[in-house]
Amino acid sequence: MGLLGAGIGMGMAAIGTGFAIGLLAGKAVEGIARQPEAAGVIRTAMILGIVFIEAIALYTLVVSILLWTKG
């Protein structure tokens, strides 16, 4: 049961993170295409945003690993 929960939770976290990072990167590319001279600033902001988003998925990963090792 713990293994099932770990798998489902990790998959749902991956869905949310993938959606969010896709949206963020798409908007960042849009911004760079519209204003190429601001590419450096936009890239830094994008990487910071991706980092904060993926942290949420990584919390799920830690919980999943705990469930996995407890069986």
């Binding site: 980092v51 993926e54 990584l58 830690v62």
Partner: peptide
């Protein structure tokens, strides 16, 4: 958690 979980994953 960010650093540890990224590298562990």
């Amino acid at each position: 958690v960010r650093l540890f979980a990224n590298i562990l994953a």
